[in-house]
Amino acid sequence: MEALFAPFEVVFVQRALWGGVLVSLICALAGTWVVLRGMAFLGDAMSHGMLPGVALASLLGGNLFVGAAAAAAGMALGVTALNRSPRLSQDTSIGLLFVGMLSAGVIIVSHSGSFAVDLTGFLFGDVLAVREQDLVLLALALLVALPVAVLGHRSFTALAFDPRKATTLGLAPRAAHAAMLGLITLAVVASFHVVGTLLVFGLLIAPPAAAALWARSIPAIMAGAAVLGCTATFVGLLVSWHWGTAAGASISATAVALFFCSAALSRLRPGGGPTPPDDDPPAPLHTDERSNAS
């Protein structure tokens, strides 16, 4: 038992654990919709799209979190604007912005004298360097993400399973899509400092995907994803402590390993394969409700 809990007697490992738990909760709320809507490529592009903002903030001596948030917001606005063009598919729009933002970020970072250090920190993060103020920011991000997920649940559900029905029901699909993008952006920006942009998907996608194989409702997927994400954080930090591996990578690798274990176990149950969520579709709105939703 001492081997399980001894590492968490160290203050910086305690902060890393709390940081990972907060990130797991945020990613559970946003990652569930990423998985259900098949938006993994968008999340990947969003994380890399932060590079120009982070690089510019680093060169100017500004706050990296603010720089990342500004760049990610710009990326989200760009995706929203390009999606309005009927001649461009969503993947094409995302791919163009992905390459453009990543190239701009590398160009900016290349003017820094600490190119390798800055880029490594951006890509892989440093969960063991989480400070108290970082925990405060993560807690605030969770306080913002939670009401967005709760208030937008009905619209997000309709948008995920039948966007045309969302329009018919007067659920303002464009506004719902923008809110969902904002939720994903918040999760990515809040998480990159802890596990880095390349590894953030270990917590953003793997836990919800693993929970989706068993859960029969969207809230259950979110709850399962939160539990699995927190478990991956705890186990990943233990692996990092005892084996001397990179903490962020250990957390993400554990999350992915939990997904494959979940997928393998789901094949053993009767009927094998994933259990689709059975959330009831949103009920039609009355006239007054429809005007309020718009």
Rank of each mutant, 00 (worst) to 15 (best):
V34N: 07
L128K: 00
T120G: 15
Q133G: 07
V106W: 03
V54E: 00
A45V: 06
L60F: 11
L36Q: 12
L123I: 12
H111A: 14
V106C: 07
G43F: 08
V34I: 12
A40I: 14
S58I: 03
L135G: 05
G67F: 03
V127G: 04
A71C: 03
P52Q: 02
L59E: 00
A70L: 15
L64I: 12
S103K: 02
G43A: 08
G100Q: 00
A116S: 15
T80M: 11
V99R: 01
R131N: 11
G100P: 03
H48C: 03
H48P: 05
D134R: 09
L97E: 03
V136K: 14
A81I: 08
L82A: 13
Q133C: 06
T92S: 15
A68V: 06
L123G: 12
G105V: 05
L51I: 05
S89K: 11
I108S: 04
A129H: 03
R37I: 11
L42Y: 15
L123P: 12
S47R: 00
D44P: 00
D91C: 09
S93E: 08
F98D: 02
V79I: 14
R37G: 10
A72W: 04
G53K: 03
P52Y: 00
A69L: 14
S93H: 05
V109R: 09
G74L: 06
A104K: 04
F115C: 09
S103C: 09
T92K: 08
L36M: 13
V54G: 00
S112F: 05
M39A: 15
R87Y: 15
V66G: 06
G78E: 02
A68E: 00
L96S: 05
L119E: 01
M75T: 08
A40V: 15
L36T: 11
P86F: 08
S112T: 04
